[in-house]
Design a protein around this nucleic acid. Structure first.
Lengths: 131, 131
DNA sequence: CTTGACCTTCCAACCATGGGAAGGTCTATC
DNA sequence: GATAGACCTTCCCATGGTTGGAAGGTCAAG
């Protein structure tokens, strides 16, 4: 099947399929006589794998490692879990950062009249007034 | 004062000060005879403003708007608050996305032995096994 | 005069994704 | 068999925030 069909079948668009090939995440596929890329069921399977990993927030570097682990039937599940835990920690850190910022901004917004008057605690805080 | 002192005084490093100038966030400063940028207390104040806004997660585009609102003494606080609320919504969306991913991955990690055995629900899920 | 710290501009990289140009190929329809 | 439209190819560029470095000018202290 051509790249467009593989994209439709996997949910990964053609542009990204070429990109994943570029960065070595996917092996270079066989080419037809017209130089079109040719994909099979196995490729679509890997593309779906990538799509699901992306949906869990894994970076392409992580996905590369996950694919290698997946291809290696005998790998210890320890390795997979460790990778997932590192990613989880990273996400928790990002969440905590965002929540910190959101909480602070929420407080400021709550104290801002938000009407026609010019005085505004949000700008005051940013300007370092009384902070 | 030179850019290095302004950086030290504001907490925004020199590289970023030049960048903010490039993208029009800051006015181009006066230059000394040696072409060095010259900054004053007002500039340091604006840089601190930018630093605090970045710490609240505002994009440079938002900060540009906030600076304009700040400089305009008569602006209605409504405008500031609206901008802040949009940013808050955006952050909440990002948090929700991350939490979704983290929850899903947590479940998978919890079900993975994480020992020497090869079977791993994380890879199974990514591969679409039983999913 | 030399050394080292500072400054200048310019170029490039990260990451994932998307847009688009310029050109080749296939398929359906007239 | 011509033409249209959908598909494919490679290539370059942009995003956003930040960092790194190269190559060169300037200044202060020794």
């Amino acid at each position: 099947m051509n790249i467009g069909e593989a994209a439709a079948a996997s949910g990964v668009n053609a542009k990204m399929i070429r990109h994943y090939e570029d960065i070595g995440l996917l092996p270079r596929p066989a080419r037809a006589e017209n130089r079109y890329r040719r994909y099979g069921a196995r490729d679509v399977h890997e593309l779906r794998f990538i799509g699901r990993a992306r949906a869990l927030g894994f970076s392409t570097a992580d996905i590369s490692a996950l694919l290698a682990l997946w291809r290696d039937r005998g790998r210890p599940s320890r390795d997979v879990r460790r990778l997932a835990e590192r990613h989880l920690d990273d996400m928790r850190r990002r969440i905590a950062n965002l929540e910190d910022m959101a909480r602070n901004l929420e407080t400021l917004v709550a104290h801002c009249h938000g009407d026609g008057r010019p005085d505004c605690p949000i700008l005051d805080e940013l300007a370092g007034v009384g902070g």
